[in-house]
Design a protein around this nucleic acid. Structure first.
Length: 794
DNA sequence: GCTTAGGTTTAG
């Protein structure tokens, strides 16, 4: 069940700060983790690495704690659940529970190193109208988890529980709590704890931000700014890497930032000018070149954001534990607006291969196909961006065995794959790259080879040094800056001149986060939009953060769908009252027909000619009423079984099954078809009103659980479901072949037994709308204007 | 132990 957005008063962001020890994701299974709670935004995916970690979490909407379990288990799945919906037949793992700790028992030691602890956890949604039997539950922790819980969790803390076993509570009558209890012991059992109390009296952490014009030497401050220049982190002569930035804000003061950290992952993730950056705990330095600069100080952290107006406000964090509020979101939006109004950004220096001119410097967004070490100060990268260079490309000769990755393509790839020679300080970064990753290379030099041959070949050098921001970085595969590249590559594969072998497909179609696993994914989307909306793709997390009505374009994978039995997706829909009915099964219909058979007691309406057929069962008759005059196209059949109606309808069109009631002919009740037209069965509703039967339409209804790296979304496939499957619901109702087609489509989107990595991407147009339920508005989502693609066609 | 860099082109 969906829940409206206004209920989301805060949402968790995973902080990854483990309570008791440093630990790397989910390899530590029985661990207590902290959550930061953040008002106003949907929890974001903070890390994909390592697989096996909790990646997304939406506390109040009660949707989508998603965990992935390591290493090769069952892939990922969404854990849902509320206290009110704990079912006895659900065991282990399939539930997640969150609530406030309202009672914490003592740590009971059984033997040495064996502990038990009991706590009572109350669903923390404000539900004053529900009794404790529905909202509070006993939870038992054992082993190390009990000890850790005892040491870490305080009363009033908000926790999320996963990997528990549900059992019947023997004390429900005595304590009045939930009739089930939850048992967390070893294995997958896990507690996530929020250390900021829910109570409103507990103030939230608050940060003040200093305008750049107000910086004075020596101040340690938090600041916001728009990036106007940046360098990717480079190794200093000291112990750290350094990122150099220039930022500005509404006061139009430009300041330099030097970010020092020996860990690359702690450097702000800046990809382009215009990005917005938030820096915590930086120190303003003494004047340098008569300007104030800032450098990192103890406890420094950074968040960066897309600078484009209208794009989702998704923080890219350097820290696993950060605070982000509605106010922050507004600050980002304001800075975006201001930047857009100023025109202060230098022109974009990004260029596609197709447009690169010789002897120029440019930024290239590309995918790495292969790499090879040339010598100690030079590494070769083979990349492409889906466009064809206008100049013939130089192929650097290299021993095939020195090449990591695969570019063994012979046909149609001329001038698609660029050789890039990476020198000196950049070699260190280049050598760490895995084929398949998406890259941005800054200040790449396009050079025409001084060869005597004509035409001269183009090659690319990433020279040593960091002038002009020279460097390279990996772009996250969901980066909006990759859209052009990805659609270029999709177009390429669509073009028949490409004859790529399978191993090659593997390389370039594998999202970077899956490299190392080398699992195959489809690159071409399995569904595409057919609408004309000019919208950027939004992460799923962003879709839920806007109030309906609104249209979105998303790129997502199908996590699961309902119903699993696809015939249940076929519905009957009343266009007048919009009611929805299941299609009755044959057994039900047959019994209604059977009950309507009353021996020789037939009606004989004056408006029809009545004749009789012998039924299949001995001695029984079937009455056939043929209307006189204008309604002769209809045949009214009385006293037939379903099987007989079906058989007769093979030869006679338009059969209306009827029965006699007190000597008069009446329609059968509305649970069976009112008209058989060949194999097609027409159902109606309210058959006895003066206008006659309101025919019901066949329709398809399916619920899709979509997922991308930012989160997940539950969307229905309804009004445009026929378009999506390219199947008419009415035809599917009578065609096994069409039902098989629907099944085939779903099997392709969500292959049985597949991992998420193996599932194709869908490009969907989604509309958010509201539904009133019990006086409340609930946000719902529907897929529109989207068709599944057929890989065998075209 | 508390610097490193502090934009502004390699020269293959």
């Amino acid at each position: 069940m969906g829940r409206r957005l206004s209920e989301i008063c805060f949402i968790g962001i995973l902080s990854w700060c483990c309570s008791s020890r440093e630990c790397e994701g989910a390899t530590e299974k029985s661990s207590i983790w902290h959550l930061d709670k953040v008002p106003g935004i949907i929890c974001q995916l903070l890390s994909l690495s390592p697989p096996g970690c909790l990646v997304g979490y939406n506390l109040m909407s009660n949707e989508g704690l998603r965990t992935e379990f390591h290493p090769s288990g069952n892939g990922s799945y969404i854990l849902n659940g509320t206290l009110t919906s704990v079912m006895m037949n659900t065991e282990e793992l399939d539930q997640c529970q969150h609530g406030k700790v309202i009672q914490k028992g003592p740590l009971v030691s059984l033997d040495e190193d064996s502990y038990v602890l009991k706590a009572v956890i109350q669903e923390h949604r404000l539900q004053h109208d529900l009794p404790p039997g529905l909202t509070a539950i006993n939870v038992f922790f054992s082993g190390g988890l009990a000890k850790e819980f005892s040491e870490t969790v305080q009363q009033e803390d908000v926790v999320v529980l996963t990997g528990f076993v549900v059992s019947r509570s023997p004390t429900t009558i005595k304590d009045g709590l939930h009739s089930c209890n939850l048992q967390l012991a070893g294995g997958e059992a896990c507690v996530y704890v929020s250390d900021i109390s829910l109570s409103t009296s507990n103030p939230k952490p608050k940060y003040n931000y200093t305008a750049l014009k107000d910086l004075k030497p020596g101040m340690i401050v938090n600041i916001y700014g728009v990036v106007t220049f940046f360098k990717q982190p480079f190794r200093t002569k000291g112990t750290d890497y350094c990122s150099t930035l220039k930022i500005t804000d509404e006061s139009n003061v430009k300041i330099g930032c030097s970010i020092f950290s020996e860990k690359l992952e702690e450097h702000p993730k800046v990809f382009k000018n215009g990005d917005i950056i938030r820096l915590h705990r930086v120190k303003a330095t003494q004047l340098f070149n008569s300007c104030v600069n800032v450098v990192t100080s103890l406890g420094f952290s950074a968040l960066t954001f897309e600078g484009t107006v209208g794009s989702p406000v998704v923080p890219r964090a350097t820290s696993r534990n950060f605070y982000f509020s509605e106010q922050d979101r507004q600050t980002v939006e304001k800075l975006r607006q201001w930047t857009a109004s100023q025109g202060l950004l230098p022109p974009l220096s990004t260029m596609q291969l197709a447009h690169v001119q010789p002897s120029t410097y440019f930024d290239l967004t590309c995918q790495l196909l292969a790499k090879a070490k040339v010598d100690s100060s030079c590494t070769l990268l083979k990349v492409w961006d889906g466009t064809r260079c206008a100049h013939p490309l130089l192929k650097v000769s290299i021993q095939p065995e020195a090449l990591e990755g695969n570019v063994d393509v012979t046909k149609g790839t001329d001038n698609l794959v660029a050789d890039i020679l990476v020198y000196d300080n950049h070699v260190e970064v280049a050598q760490e790259l895995k084929p398949g990753v998406y890259l941005r290379i800054y200040n790449l030099h396009a050079i025409l080879q001084p060869t005597p041959t004509t035409p001269r070949h183009m090659c690319f050098h990433l020279h040593g040094g960091t002038s002009y921001g020279r460097g390279l970085c990996v772009l996250p595969s969901n980066s909006p800056d990759l859209q052009q590249l990805q659609s270029n590559l999709e177009l390429l594969t669509a073009s028949s001149e490409m004859n790529l072998d399978d191993s090659f497909m593997d390389v370039w179609s594998t999202p970077p986060e899956n490299l190392g696993h080398w699992r195959f994914t489809f690159f071409s989307p399995a569904a595409v939009r057919t609408c004309g909306h000019a919208l950027e793709q939004a992460p799923l997390s962003c879709v839920k953060s806007f109030a309906p009505p609104r249209v979105f374009h998303v790129r997502a994978q199908l996590h699961r769908f309902q119903p699993q039995r696809l015939y249940q997706a076929l519905k009957l829909h009343c266009p007048r009252c919009r009611a929805l009915f299941d299609i009755p099964d044959d057994e039900t219909i047959a019994s209604v027909f059977q009950e309507a058979i009353h021996g020789e007691d037939f009606s004989s309406p004056a408006w029809a000619l009545t004749g009789f057929l012998d039924s299949t069962s001995r001695g029984r008759k079937i009455a056939v009423h043929l209307p006189k005059g204008e309604r002769e196209e209809l045949v009214f059949l009385e006293g037939a079984t379903l099987e007989e109606v079906c058989r007769i309808s093979q030869n006679l069109q338009n059969i209306v099954p009827v029965k006699s009631y007190e000597g008069r002919m009446v329609c059968m009740d509305l649970s069976v078809p009112f008209l058989f037209q060949g194999a097609t069965r027409h159902y109606g509703s309210v058959p006895f009103i003066s206008l006659g039967v309101q025919p019901l339409h066949y329709a398809l209804l399916m619920k899709l659980y979509l997922e991308d790296s930012s989160g997940f979304l539950e969307a229905v496939l309804w009004e445009d479901a026929e378009k999506f499957f390219r199947v008419s619901a009415a035809d599917a109702a009578v065609s096994q072949e069409l039902q098989d087609k629907i099944q085939w489509v779903m099997d392709r989107l969500c292959p049985p037994g597949s991992t998420m990595a193996e599932r194709p991407w869908l490009e969907l147009c989604i509309e958010a709308y509201t539904v009133e339920e019990g006086g409340r508005s609930i946000a719902c989502y529907q897929v529109f204007n989207t068709e599944t693609t057929d890989p065998h066609m075209e």
